[in-house]
Design a protein around this nucleic acid. Structure first.
Lengths: 234, 234
DNA sequence: TAGATTGTTAATCGATTAACAATC
DNA sequence: TAGATTGTTAATCGATTAACAATC
């Protein structure tokens, strides 16, 4: 019993979790370049990390490296895919068919990560029934009916910030386990957990935020602070 | 001379820089709610931080708090806006007028953060000359001419990943100071610095990455790991 | 065997939290 | 004055880096 946990190595720290998708991305690239083995030092170089960090990180997945040789890229990639749930075929819906929503639906963003987009919703009558990337936009009012008939794992929030909180609560009540939030609202997992259906196991949806505006401001902050240093240097 | 530095408090750590845009967002919200003063504890509650952390953070901006009273929201907001460069009116161009590019151009994402979108570029002849959110899309080949005639601070990369590296190098050579990267390519600041025009002061553009796919995978990872715990609990 | 490279432990660094005197 | 809340120092926690024995 305990062995099964041990086999997977130590639990993943927050920071390691953040780096996992990057590892996945780089390993995929390596496979495309037909590089089948790599040392911690080389991988670190490509990713802007230290060799030590890479070894520490990869060790969390039960030491798939080999002394004197390095890591088997294919094996590592498979392992990562498994942990990241790429093979789970998670099912997602998009809530809000505005500009951002349509952009998200258009690319292969979802499919390339193993997520299937199974529905697009909007509340605007002018949009409902129209096609977006070959999919009909459903009436937001039909969310409950849809979720009763179809398994939905993830909801993508690309609607107006003012509607975000209420919608997130509604989604939580529907038992949707993951919310990918593109609005400016900070959705609290503990608040949403209160809406979780009582018959469902364990509690509440996880929230992943993409604050685009914050990211832009971080860039501006960097420009701003480098600007300040510049005159001092002359 | 030294006092001027001291007045601003200690240098901003990485983590504080990440939280700054969030503070800005929440302070704006407070002002809209007509809340003009707030204690570290209350602000922490709204943001999901600890009171201690808020005080530690805000102290980096030269202690604008008052014992027994709290913080003046208006004053704090002004201070943040200044540090984040909201009043600098940074000028941005968008490179790649595909789905994501058009979505970015459409909202008020830029203007609301004090950034002005001054040009949209694409290399596809079918798109060049067409309108996007009331702006003509320019030929990507005219980038150099455009940048010689107009100040450009930031470039937003919403083009195909395969074109990203070359374009980033070209933008670096044009002396563009900030790159907001939406492609899957990891742009190395040190690599780009090598392309920086020799006549420009200090070296190289700063890069801010938004790996949308990585964010989605982080959510999937969370779902995946909670799933694992679930059966064990029953 | 000799060289390379891992896994893992210990040392360092940075960020968060706790505590409390200073003071509004 | 008494109560509230900051600024700041010290203690704790977690993550990164360094080092090196184990081993392919």
């Amino acid at each position: 019993m305990e062995d099964e946990y041990k086999a997977k190595g130590p639990a993943l720290s927050k920071q390691v979790k953040c780096r996992l998708p990057r590892y996945y991305r780089h390993l995929k690239l390596l496979l495309e370049e037909n590089i089948l083995r790599i040392s911690s030092g080389e991988l670190a170089g490509r990713m802007g990390l230290t060799a030590s960090q890479v070894r520490q990180d990869l060790n969390c997945f039960g030491g798939c490296g080999q002394q004197g040789y390095g890591y088997n890229v294919k094996h590592l990639f498979t392992e990562m895919a498994e942990i990241l749930g790429v093979n789970e075929k998670f099912r997602a819906i998009l809530v809000g068919a505005g500009n951002l929503g349509r952009a998200m639906a258009a690319g292969n963003l979802f499919l390339s990560r193993g997520v299937e987009l199974v529905g697009i919703f909007d509340r605007d009558p002018a949009v409902i029934g129209k096609q977006v990337s070959g999919r009909v936009v459903y009436d937001e009012g039909k969310l409950e009916v849809f979720c009763a008939a179809n398994r939905v794992d993830v909801a993508v929030l690309t609607l107006t910030s003012s509607e975000a909180q209420a919608m997130a609560e509604r989604l939580a009540a529907l038992g949707i386990r993951g919310i990918w939030n593109f609005t400016n609202i900070e959705l609290s997992e503990s608040v949403l957990a209160a809406f979780w259906p009582p018959e469902a196991p364990v509690g509440g949806p996880s929230v992943q935020n993409v604050y685009l505006g914050d990211s832009l401001m971080q860039l501006c902050l960097e420009l701003r602070s480098r600007e300040e240093k510049s005159p001092a240097a002359e």
